[in-house]
């Protein structure tokens, strides 16, 4: 060291301040985001922003006929993205539809993340009867085909329309709960795997030796290391939920008209494939681009938060 340290070690050691030379040279510092990440972020920002601000944006009424039926997109004098079979503005319908699709996807994955993530943490950390029971539970849930599970959950939650005095949850809530429950075992399994490997590290043993309780170890030592994997899988899960919502809509399980989601737009657009395919392709493109963006960002985030554990 060139500068004399003002303090001296009580043991008379030379103080080491600067990190190990090798430590910094091998560790590649974080680079800027690539163009693809920025495109993904831009797309998601536009989607989320327009969905959030749909009511204040100068959009046509998504449920009223405003143009000739099946008006083709990008023609002067009409809606920029054209009009559907009822003459409704496609742009406005895509944005309003996206709003519901995104709400369903985000909320259902948050349900899955909180419940599944928490159970996964417990299952990975307590490798005793509790862990075994949880793992068994996840396995059983994962063994049921997810579409079947989602459909049956929807039909149970929706209540019976023929019994008006029975309980009736709004369909959006039903979809959120159904997709959320389906995602619980998936998110739990991934969280558990990551927790398992981190909680076997010596620093966890060291924390126990210092008298740290289970809660402190789980939330201070383990969770921060597991969180990046959970976050990236959350984005991936949202992408899947958006697609899954579309799938359910095609099977006829979705919001009632005139409300729409990307899923219902795809479902109704199917019949226009011959005359006006854009009515189908526009919502498909919205789903596709959003899912790809989420997926890609999930990967980028995982890589960036993948801590360099050491210089060694």
């Amino acid at each position: 060291m060139t500068t004399v340290p003002p303090e001296v070690s009580p043991l008379g050691l030379t103080l080491e301040a600067a990190p190990h030379a090798a430590a910094e040279s091998t560790a590649t510092r974080k680079k800027g985001l690539g163009i693809a990440s920025w495109l993904a972020i831009a797309w998601l920002t536009i989607m989320v922003g327009s969905a959030a601000l749909a009511d204040v944006l100068p959009l046509k009424d998504p449920n009223a006929g405003v143009a000739p039926k099946r008006f083709a997109p990008f023609q002067s004098g009409g809606p920029i993205l054209g009009a559907d079979a009822n003459g409704r503005d496609m742009l406005s319908r895509t944005i309003y539809g996206g709003r519901i699709s995104l709400i369903i996807a985000v909320c259902s994955i948050l349900v899955g993340l909180f419940i599944g993530g928490f159970l996964g943490l417990l299952a990975g950390y307590f490798r005793n009867w509790l862990g075994n029971i949880l793992v068994g539970l996840f396995d059983i849930l994962l063994a049921i085909p997810q579409l079947v599970l989602a459909l049956s959950l929807v039909s149970v939650l929706k209540g019976d329309p023929n019994i008006p005095e029975g309980f009736h949850l709004p369909i959006i809530l039903v979809l959120i709960i159904a997709l959320g429950l389906v995602s619980i075992p998936i998110l739990a399994r991934i969280t558990r795997a990551s927790t398992l490997s981190w909680s076997q590290r010596d620093f966890v043993t060291a924390a126990r030796a210092q008298g740290a309780g289970h809660g402190r170890i789980l939330f201070r030592e383990v969770l921060p290391n597991v969180a990046p994997a959970m976050f990236s899988i959350t984005l991936l899960g949202m992408a899947i939920a958006i697609v899954a919502e579309g799938g359910l809509a095609i099977l006829g399980v979705s919001v009632e008209p005139p409300q729409s989601t990307w899923g219902t737009m795809i479902a109704t657009g199917k019949s226009e494939l011959d005359g006006a395919p854009f009515i189908l392709w526009i919502p498909i493109a919205a789903v596709f681009l959003t899912a790809v963006s989420l997926n890609y960002l999930g990967d980028v985030i995982r890589d960036r938060f993948d801590v360099r554990e050491s210089a060694l």
Binding site: T14, E16, A17, P19, V307, A311
Partner: peptide, 15 residues
């Protein structure tokens, strides 16, 4: 033998 002023805020991978 570590300089607390410099070391305190760093993370393990830098050592």
């Amino acid at each position: 033998g570590l300089d607390p002023k410099v070391v305190r805020g760093r993370r393990p991978h830098q050592f």
